[in-house]
Design a protein around this nucleic acid. Sequence first.
DNA 1: TCAATGCTTCGATTAGCATCGAACTATGAA
DNA 2: TTCATAGTTCGATGCTAATCGAAGCATTGA
Lengths: 226, 226
Amino acid sequence: MKEGPDIARVAALLGDPARANMLTALMSGRALTATELAQEAGVTPQTASSHLAKLEAGQIVTPRKQGRHRYFTLSGPDIVEALEVLMGIANRVGHNRVRTGPKDPELRKARVCYDHLAGDMGVALFDGLAKRKLIASDLNGVALTPAGIDFASEFGIDLDGLRAKRRPLCRECLDWSARQSHLAGSFGAALLDRFYDLGWARRVTDSRIVRFSNAGEKSFRDLINP
Amino acid sequence: MKEGPDIARVAALLGDPARANMLTALMSGRALTATELAQEAGVTPQTASSHLAKLEAGQIVTPRKQGRHRYFTLSGPDIVEALEVLMGIANRVGHNRVRTGPKDPELRKARVCYDHLAGDMGVALFDGLAKRKLIASDLNGVALTPAGIDFASEFGIDLDGLRAKRRPLCRECLDWSARQSHLAGSFGAALLDRFYDLGWARRVTDSRIVRFSNAGEKSFRDLINP
DNA sequence: TCAATGCTTCGATTAGCATCGAACTATGAA
DNA sequence: TTCATAGTTCGATGCTAATCGAAGCATTGA
């Protein structure tokens, strides 16, 4: 009938509430089992199975069999990007769920959102970088300032390497718990990696929690509030 | 129920074939009337009206009243980006419509796809830049090489200005007629703008056709095949 | 005023699909 | 082998939403 790639097929796959919930859960970057995804989506395992079959057929998720579990992950960075963009639009047009966010105080404080820092410290990072004028945000989104570009190389981040990827460098991502923006995109992810490398923080296994050491948190505070 | 922005609402709006066709048509950047969009989508005006009401309520499109017509445009650059990303995914997973592309030979040769160059010359531009190693594409997508960055400034393109926008610099976009990649993203758009400024080409009014002058086409050939 | 065009609202029909209960397969543990 | 857990398939149900015909506004032009 019409020309071009079939957007509708892909978008329809993301457009069901149950499936969207599953995919959102997978944005944590962790591989989740079918049952876990069923719980995340609030549906029965049968229903989840049917949804997962569709997502798999559409190459939105990739399954990996391990013992009697099937672990699912998002099938590529383009899926992450699509979800991030859609989140941004949903945020802009005010389609937000009423929800307070995670209960666990450690989760509220610092956790990973796919591959970047979220939670109170994620928001603090965004605000801190903005206050130091290393990033600037306007109607069109957020971007590194010239000062921010200098900062990145001083801080040990290879911007040219990041630019080689398809993902945009900077993106705002609405924080589920704090309801404010934190920094996503490949630069946001690189910052968190750098925190790991510097020993400031580490990821708690089997959880989205990011735990800063005392010294690491101090350095972090100095970074955002010099 | 769940946390976060409501992806599903937005994605569902893009996930209907009729609506997706309308939105794809609007990627040309031109404002289209309700009846035109109905034709593009292959539905009756009544059905189109109902779809447009939903898209308007979801702030995906913006109407502008003029006389007895209602002109619709995409409501922001984030919508364009979402459509581009979804096209990329649909392309990757092989969800393409079977269709040869536009019939008009001039359309096949050079036209705008939203705001960048498409058609045979769009594909030639992509290939030429790749052959000159000004852009490099891999699994993750396409990006400017260091040589490409130098080229851009020599050619009069303000990369820092482009980076300040939310849109990614480079993106592959599957060409509807040639079935090969051409260059989208803010850099792709800037290149086309530069062609206009240099007098190489101009846009035919009320059409997506881009018409190169003889001298312009020669310069274009020299550019991509030095 | 009348007619034509652009677009929307109403109502009825239809089709697709999300959902779940129940039964089935597969892996692992006792 | 037997039991338990993880996951899928099947079938039935019910809801939502896309679709279009017909009628209703609104704007423009004669």
